[in-house]
Simulated scan of single mutants.
Amino acid sequence: MAAKKDPTAEVLDTIAAMTERDRAVAERLHEVITTAAPELSPRLWYKQPAYALGGPKGKVLCFFRGADVDGERYLSFGFSGEARLDDGGLWPTAYAVTEVTDAVAERITGLVQDAVSGTR
């Protein structure tokens, strides 16, 4: 039986295989997410990069999908229901991302940290 590939390596391989426009955003998103919440474990979810609580077999908290995967004009970054980013009766669960500037990275960092803290 072949050994299973490391989940982080699978995520990095998936990012490396993205088109150039998605790859630049995805590499930066991966860096921002793993820095903001090192307790999250990278893994694939529906063949796309995701970050889970409780190890690679844990529940996915956030994820992203390349634009070209869905034939969209933007990469999407989203949160599962585990994130508990509830804000009254309406809150966003996904964002369009075309670039990760310092301001975008700061916003994503805050969202990811809020999502992690809301699950405790």
Rank of each mutant, 00 (worst) to 15 (best):
L53C: 07
D114M: 03
V25F: 01
P42L: 07
G78I: 00
V32C: 08
A67S: 11
C62N: 03
A3R: 15
V97R: 09
K4D: 12
Q113D: 04
F63D: 00
Y74H: 15
A115K: 03
A105T: 03
D87P: 00
C62Y: 00
S41K: 05
V112P: 05
G71S: 11
E39W: 07
L44N: 03
G81E: 14
T35F: 09
V25I: 12
P38L: 12
A96L: 03
E39L: 12
K47Y: 08
L111T: 03
G81M: 09
P38G: 11
T119A: 15
L53N: 03
A94I: 03
T19S: 14
A94M: 11
G54V: 07
P7K: 08
G71I: 04
L90Y: 12
G89K: 15
R65I: 09
T119E: 10
L40V: 06
G110E: 10
E72A: 14
V116R: 00
R107K: 13
L111F: 08
A9F: 00
Y46D: 13
E20T: 12
L61P: 01
G81K: 14
P49G: 07
V116D: 04
A50G: 11
E20G: 09
G71L: 06
L75C: 08
R23H: 07
D68A: 15
T109C: 10
V69G: 00
S117I: 03
A103N: 07
A2G: 11
D87L: 06
K47H: 11
F64Y: 13
A26I: 00
A115I: 07
L53H: 08
D114I: 01
E10S: 14
I15P: 02
P49H: 01
E82T: 12
G58P: 09
L75V: 08
G58M: 11
R120H: 12
M1F: 12
E20Y: 02
Q48L: 11
S76W: 02
A52W: 04
L90A: 15
V100P: 02
L75A: 03
D6M: 05
Y51R: 08
T19A: 14
D114R: 12
G89N: 13
L85Q: 05
T109G: 07
E27K: 14
A52R: 02
R43F: 00
G81S: 15
R73F: 06
V11Q: 06
A103V: 04
L44R: 06
L111E: 07
A17L: 09
S117A: 15
T101P: 05
P92T: 06
F79Q: 04
G118P: 01
Q113W: 02
A83K: 01
A96M: 05
A37E: 04
G78Q: 01
P49E: 02
E10Y: 01
A103Q: 12
A36I: 05
F63T: 00
L90H: 14
E10A: 14
A26G: 07
Q48F: 03
S117F: 05
I108Y: 01
P38T: 10
D68N: 15
D102C: 04
E106H: 09
A36E: 05
E27G: 09
Y46Q: 13
